[in-house]
Amino acid sequence: MFESIKNLFKKEEVFPCIIFDGKIMKYLDLTQKQIDKLQEENKDWTITKKEEC
């Protein structure tokens, strides 16, 4: 029980990213779940983590 409550307050790792949709480049800090969701929804977008540059 304590572990499940503790997991609610656990912070997910955030990655600085560059997102290019073909027109505009955006700089955001996203979790891996958010990155995966954006890539799934927008196949033509390019999402690059700062560490991959």
Rank of each mutant, 00 (worst) to 15 (best):
M1W: 15
M1A: 13
F2E: 15
F2I: 14
E3K: 06
S4W: 12
S4E: 13
K6M: 06
N7L: 10
N7V: 00
L8F: 11
F9H: 10
F9T: 03
K10I: 07
E12H: 10
E12A: 12
E13D: 13
V14I: 15
F15M: 02
P16H: 01
P16W: 03
C17Q: 07
I18E: 06
I18G: 02
D21L: 03
D21S: 00
D21T: 00
D21W: 01
G22N: 01
K23G: 03
M25V: 07
M25Q: 11
M25P: 01
K26H: 09
K26P: 04
K26D: 04
Y27C: 02
L28E: 03
L28Q: 12
L30V: 00
L30G: 03
T31W: 14
Q32F: 13
Q32P: 04
Q34H: 11
Q34F: 05
Q34I: 04
I35C: 13
I35Q: 10
I35P: 10
D36S: 13
D36Q: 14
L38N: 14
L38H: 13
Q39P: 05
Q39L: 14
E41L: 15
N42C: 10
K43V: 15
W45I: 06
I47W: 08
I47E: 05
T48D: 04
T48K: 11
K50R: 07
E51K: 12
E51Y: 10
C53R: 00
C53G: 01
C53Q: 00
